[in-house]
Design a protein around this nucleic acid. Structure first.
Lengths: 198, 198
DNA sequence: TGGTTTACCGAACATTCGGTCAGTAATCAA
DNA sequence: TTGATTACTGACCGAATGTTCGGTAAACCA
């Protein structure tokens, strides 16, 4: 046996490892605050070596955002988001969103910070808005079913519900925090049953 | 009467108006994504004119962050956060936090995006952590009182509760959304009573 | 062994960055 | 009227930015 997995490669990097490291640095310093020199340092190489593996800084961001967004797309395409009472589907979507967030943490973290500064970011924002509309419709249905409180606008419920979910990205550490399932349970408990003891 | 308010000023800008505009642009494009040229364009002046009124880009950020943090400091110093049952104090702190967020929206928005890239940002993060500890202690007390559910870690409750509150900064538009008081009512309803109809 | 490909290096590119500075027109108090 | 102050302008600075390119050592295939 020679060195690594398949089709042995002699040294260094590949597009995947560059992306992985880049996303980490992007999160730490912000995308705009990260220079290619910063990336090179984090990878232990030179700027020009990076360009051998990936086409540039913005494409690096684009690939990262797509990983997060593909997760959400798969979620929306799932049959479990399409059949049954809206209330149950909503809970399933929240649970799955937590799972995706934890599973693809760095990519989703990056997505949540995008503000639309470039074509890449604008495209990502548009795909993200699609998911928002999807959830919003679910909340509206669940309200129509009479299963969630009718005294708060569905649009506001959606925003606050996913504000809670997305805030995970600000503090979750895979090593310390519990499993994604436990975290989802907690979030569903708080958001649907409330904090107060009764 | 000559021109404006007190001590008439002939043309243009002052530190306050520069800060106000700068914060808007910082939010739109991100601090690192904003150049002094961008600021000059937004102000309808030149880069060098900006430097007549303010010492530089980072100080601009520092002043903005201080406005947000001073709000939180005043909150912590308030007597209503210090006496009475922890449960009531916690609700008061949440309500006040929403009020500050809405009242100083652009400054708080900026604060919530800080990651610690410079001395200015690190100082801001440290002050923000102080507030987090303050809230965390309150949650712990309220749990000890038996008024909030005991089956979720106080630290996690704090994070999710303020994840919900802080998410306001991502979508609230003063012109459209209701008053800060109404918004706080809604948030307290959802977080303490839950979404589910019972 | 020889030629091709892979994976890089270092230097350089044009551009943009935050910031400085000498000069100046307009307004001010005296 | 004059001298000082205010509020700039425009040219410029060195450093840093993302990206390109000519070269090259090592590994590969024949």
């Amino acid at each position: 046996m020679t060195t690594s997995t398949t089709s042995r490669r002699r040294r260094g990097h590949d597009p995947e490892s560059v992306l992985h490291t880049a996303v980490g640095v992007f999160i730490e310093r912000g995308y705009d605050g990260t220079s290619m020199e910063d990336l090179a340092r984090a990878l232990g190489t030179t700027k020009s070596a990076i360009y051998y593996h990936v086409p540039g800084k913005e494409q690096l961001l684009g690939r990262a955002l797509d990983r997060a967004l593909d997760g959400l797309s798969e979620l929306m395409a799932d049959e479990r988001a399409a059949s049954g009472p809206a209330f149950d589907r909503l809970q399933w979507v929240v649970r799955q969103s937590v799972a995706i967030l934890v599973d693809r943490l760095p990519y989703v973290t990056l997505l949540l910070r995008v503000r639309g500064n470039s074509v890449t970011e604008l495209r990502a924002l548009e795909r993200r808005r699609e998911f928002d509309r999807f959830v919003s419709a679910l909340v509206k249905e669940a309200a129509a079913e009479g299963r969630i409180r009718p005294d708060i606008e569905p649009a506001l419920v959606t925003r606050l519900l996913f504000g809670t979910v997305n805030s995970i990205a600000d503090w979750y550490q895979p090593a310390r925090g519990g499993s994604a399932g436990d975290l989802a349970d907690t979030i569903l408990k708080i958001t649907f049953e409330g904090l107060r003891v009764r």
